Amino acid sequence: MTNTPAIPTSVLTLASEAQRVTVLTGAGMSAESGVPTFRDAQTGLWARYDATALATPEAWERDPALVWSWYMWRHHLVRQTEPNAGHKALGGWETTASVTVVTQNIDDLHERGGSSRVHHLHGSLFAFRCSRCSRPYTQPVDDTPPHDTPRKPPACDECAGPVRPGVVWFGEMLPNSPWEASVRAVQDCDLLLVVGTSSLVYPAAGLPRIAQDRGIPIVEVNTEETPLSTQCTACLRIPAASALPRLADMHVT
């Protein structure tokens, strides 16, 4: 059995003393629950499609049924997964500190893990809106198999326009409210954890710079080195599902 690397005492101390923790998460966090990353999702019946070509406004305009079917497949995949120990640790940490999650992930695993303050920078697979009038769509959606036949998206209750996934596609701006809330969460924290993100996708990758400029400790939790690594207070080459419970457990009342 491989022993899990120890977490330095200095990092455990940061976790135990932090009163306001902000956690920036990326695809690696969800991958530990078995959620395929964006490009890894192009397997099986969807292998013949380019993921970046499906996740665009142009693809939606060209073939909304095809795009809707792809997202219903991903919606179905996420519903079959469960929050891992890292998600649950962040949810439990709220009992002893103010913990805010800023995520690039479009799944709902943080919420299901118990986190109540989650800002989705790239939208959510579980939030839908009309592509014509932008009215939120709250009716149940059908994500049941089979997914290899394009299915028509539901119609908006208000204007009958086609309902689209509430995610940010390539070429679209980030939603203002989650972005502004995320900036405030980083500005106001006394510990920033950056978990499972490549630190390559902007503007999310620029958030740690805000913490750095303010002298806020940054701890990276990632099994691989990233462009952010050299700027961090500490780097834990430990999976999130292992590292986060140990950090959360350090904070006791």
Rank of each mutant, 00 (worst) to 15 (best):
T2E: 11
P5Y: 15
P5H: 14
I7T: 00
I7Q: 00
P8T: 07
T9G: 14
T9S: 12
L12M: 14
S16A: 15
V21T: 04
V21Q: 10
T22Q: 09
L24K: 11
T25A: 02
G26D: 06
A27Y: 05
G28S: 09
G28I: 01
M29R: 04
S30R: 10
S33E: 00
S33Q: 08
V35Q: 03
P36I: 03
T37K: 02
T43L: 02
G44H: 00
Y49K: 10
A55S: 12
P57Q: 06
E58V: 11
A59N: 11
R62Q: 12
D63F: 00
V67M: 07
W68H: 10
S69M: 11
W70Y: 14
W70M: 08
W73R: 00
H76T: 01
L77N: 02
V78A: 13
Q80T: 15
P83I: 03
A85I: 10
A89G: 07
A89W: 07
L90N: 05
L90E: 09
E94N: 13
T96S: 15
S98V: 05
V102Y: 12
I106S: 05
I106C: 03
D108F: 08
D108A: 13
L109A: 05
L109F: 02
E111S: 12
R112S: 00
G114M: 06
S116Y: 01
R117A: 10
R117S: 08
R117N: 08
H122C: 01
G123Q: 07
A127L: 09
F128L: 15
C130E: 06
P136G: 06
Q139E: 13
D143F: 07
D143T: 11
D143M: 03
R151T: 13
A155Y: 03
E158I: 15
G161L: 02
G161R: 05
P162I: 08
V163C: 06
R164K: 15
R164G: 04
P165S: 11
V168Y: 03
F170A: 02
M173T: 15
M173P: 00
P175F: 09
S177K: 12
W179R: 11
A181I: 00
S182Y: 04
V183P: 05
V183C: 12
R184M: 04
V186P: 03
Q187C: 06
L192G: 14
V194E: 02
V194N: 01
V195C: 10
V195E: 01
T197P: 12
S198P: 01
Y202W: 10
Y202G: 10
A204H: 04
R209Q: 12
I210C: 07
R214T: 07
R214S: 11
G215H: 10
G215A: 10
I216M: 04
I218C: 13
V221H: 06
E224M: 08
E225T: 14
E225Y: 03
T226R: 15
T230R: 15
C232A: 13
C232Y: 08
A234P: 01
C235P: 02
P239C: 09
A240H: 07
A243T: 08
P245E: 05
R246G: 01
R246T: 07
L247N: 06
L247R: 11
H251G: 02
